[in-house]
Computed example of a mutant assay.
Amino acid sequence: MIKGLLGIIDKMHIEVFPSKEYIEPPKKTIIVQLNPEKYTMKHNVVFCESQATGTSGSDLSFNRIEGEEVTFDFFFDSSGIVPPGKIKDGKGEETFLDAVGDIANALKPAIVNPFGEVETVEKDVEEFKNLLMGYDGDTHQTAYLRLLWGGYSLSCRLKSMDIEYTLFRKDGRPIRAKVKCTFKGTVSYKIMVAKENKSSPDLTHERIIKMNDNLALLSESIYDNNSFYIDVAKNNKLLSFRKVSLGQKIKFPPIK
């Protein structure tokens, strides 16, 4: 918000979470050095193939829809031409001073000391890699991540990382790198089961009121419990659970 008001481009954020529930605040937030120029999304349907003896074709039976995959290229540069990325604790929310600092860095001339030694990007790339795919000895898992960029959001885990170094100092140490990352979307078992079960009380349902429909009975059929109809009435701003009009659309929110 602050950056938008000051005309600074919002950078992509990668939040690193301690568990698969995504309930606790993130441990760290990576703010990338440069926004990716593009990204590739992949959606995959898996079939079971069966072919009868003596036939030339196969019968495809639906098996599953795999989680979304997305690939980004991240750039690291320590030459001083581009302001550095950031790694912050928690959600990494930008303050007014952060935004002012970004403006100052953007306006600062890129002057490189010809007698100085340019820092390498090895440390930044290694820290980035450890946050995204470092193994946690307590949970016996790699990191749970959330990608945030504009309106795009994906809860995911890192599937693969390719590191390409493209510019070097005289001693052969890299000062520029392109890191290609493929992330695979993930959901908790509870949410996955809820999505696959169309009548699950963990999903929001909509019903169009028909003749002889009763809010209490509809609530009981969805929640498998006869005590939520008052909450449904309040959620739909009804004056009374008995005053439901024919053809009215009623939403039944998930149980929290």
Rank of each mutant, 00 (worst) to 15 (best):
H13W: 13
V32S: 07
K91R: 07
F76W: 06
D10M: 15
F183C: 04
K129E: 15
F96N: 08
L132T: 02
T139Y: 02
I23N: 07
P114Q: 03
E127K: 09
D171M: 05
G137V: 04
L203V: 03
P174Q: 01
L167I: 00
Q248Y: 06
T139R: 14
K170A: 10
L147K: 02
K88I: 00
D213C: 05
N105R: 12
F183S: 02
S245D: 13
D202H: 12
W149H: 09
V244H: 14
V32D: 12
T182A: 10
I103Q: 09
T53L: 11
N44Y: 01
K86D: 15
L218N: 10
F62N: 01
S160N: 13
Y165E: 13
W149R: 05
I230S: 14
D136S: 09
T182R: 07
G116A: 14
G90D: 12
G80H: 07
F76H: 03
L238M: 12
F252L: 09
T120W: 01
K190E: 08
K180E: 13
E21H: 08
V232P: 06
Y39P: 00
I208L: 10
K129I: 07
G57C: 07
L107Q: 13
K237E: 04
P83L: 04
T95L: 06
R146L: 09
D59Y: 03
L132F: 09
L107F: 15
R146Q: 10
N225Q: 11
K256L: 04
N63E: 13
G7R: 00
L5P: 00
V46L: 04
V45S: 07
S240R: 13
A99C: 09
L60M: 12
L34Y: 02
N130P: 01
L203I: 10
L34N: 06
I163E: 14
A177Y: 03
A194T: 15
A106M: 08
G150T: 03
E93A: 14
P83T: 00
A52W: 04
K27C: 11
P25F: 06
A194C: 10
S227F: 04
G172F: 13
T40M: 09
K190G: 03
T182M: 11
F241E: 11
G151L: 12
K159A: 08
T186C: 14
L107G: 01
M133L: 01
I2R: 13
K256S: 08
S78N: 09
F72L: 04
I30Y: 12
P254G: 11
P201H: 02
S50G: 05
F75G: 01
L215Q: 12
I208G: 04
K3R: 12
E196V: 00
K243F: 07
